[in-house]
Design a protein around this nucleic acid. Structure first.
Lengths: 156, 156
DNA sequence: TATTGTTATACTCTATAACTATA
DNA sequence: TATAGTTATAGAGTATAACAATA
C-alpha cells in the first residue's frame, strides 16, 4: 500500500533536483518548526517568534539596548522600534535613557514581562521535544551544531 | 585580543538561552543562506527563491499542475497564481488546460524558461560550495539528511 | 457538492529615507 | 560629522474569502 493514507489525489512532485540545496532544506524544515512554535507558544501566549526571542534575550541579558537586539535578531533599527512599541504597550518591557550615553536606551522587562519570558522559555522545552522527536539526542546535538557552524562561518 | 576585528562598539548579547531551539538556529542559518542565494542567483538572474524553485521543479517534472506546485512549495493557491502570472509575463512558462480534467492546468517551461532553469540550477552548485564551505563533505551530507528528517517527521 | 484556479483584499514583515537628539 | 532611535512610507510575502468553471 502507498505510504500516505489520504485520498492521494495529487501525486507529489519529484524534488530531488532541489534536495542538495541547504536553503531549500532549511525552508522545508522551517515549516513544521514554525507550526510547532505557533501551537506551543505563539497562540497560547500571543507571541510572534521575534517577540518570544526578544523577551527571552532580555530575561537573560540585563541592560540591553535596542541596537544590541537589532544585531542579535538580524533586524533593522526601525523594525526593533515597532517591536518594542508593541511589547511596551502590552506592559512587558520598559525603556529608559542611558546615563552614560543619552542617545541610547536601556530596555528592561517588567515583572509581567519577566514572568511571560520565563513561562515561554519553559514551554519552548516541550516544543523542542516534539519538533525533534524524530531525532536521537546525538542527532539533535549534531544538527544544532552544524547549523551554528553555517551561521558562524558566514558572519566571518 | 578580541575575536572580532571591527570597532566593537556594541557588545553582542549572550544568546545561549535560545541556542537549544531548532527554530532559532534555522532562522540564524537562514540569513547567510538567503544572502548567498541573492548574490549567486537572485540578483544576476532576477529570481526570488520560490521563482527559482518553481523553474527547477518544472524543468525536472513534466506536466506539472499549479496544485502540485502549491504542495511542493508549501504555498497557498492564490500565491501560486500570482507567481505563475509573473513567470508567464516574463515568457518563462506557459499554461494550458488539461485534457483529462478541464479544471486543471498543465504548466510547462518555454525554451527561455528551460534555459534559465538549467543555468540557475548550475549556479546553485557554486552557491552551495560557498554556503557550506565551513563544513566537510560528511558534515554537509549529515546536515541535509537531518533537516530532511525533521521536515519528513512533521509531515506524517 | 467538491475541486481547480482566479480575483480582490487585508495583514504582516521587511526595507529605505528623512528626521531628532545627542555625541 | 557620526550614532541611537523614531517616524513615515512603500514593497514583498502571505492569508482569507468570494467567485467561475468544471467535475
Amino acid at each position: 500500500m502507498p505510504a500516505s493514507k489520504d485520498k492521494q489525489k495529487t501525486p507529489g512532485l519529484d524534488q530531488s533536483c532541489l534536495q542538495h540545496l541547504l536553503g531549500y532544506q532549511i525552508a522545508r524544515a522551517d515549516v513544521p518548526t514554525r507550526r510547532a512554535f505557533a501551537e506551543h507558544i505563539g497562540r497560547p501566549l500571543e507571541l510572534s517568534p521575534v517577540e518570544f526571542s526578544s523577551l527571552v534575550l532580555l530575561a537573560f541579558n540585563p541592560a540591553t539596548t535596542p541596537k544590541q537586539l537589532a544585531e542579535a535578531l538580524a533586524m533593522v533599527a526601525p523594525a526593533v522600534t515597532v517591536l518594542l512599541d508593541r511589547l511596551e504597550k502590552r506592559g512587558l518591557i520598559e525603556r529608559a535613557r542611558s546615563d552614560s550615553d543619552r542617545r541610547a536606551q536601556i530596555v528592561s522587562l517588567t515583572d509581567a514581562g519577566r514572568e511571560l519570558a520565563l513561562k515561554a522559555h519553559a514551554l519552548s522545552m516541550d516544543m523542542e521535544r516534539e519538533v525533534l522527536s524524530a531525532l536521537s539526542a546525538a542527532e539533535r546535538a549534531i544538527l544544532i551544531e552544524l547549523l551554528q557552524k553555517v551561521a558562524r562561518a558566514a558572519r566571518a
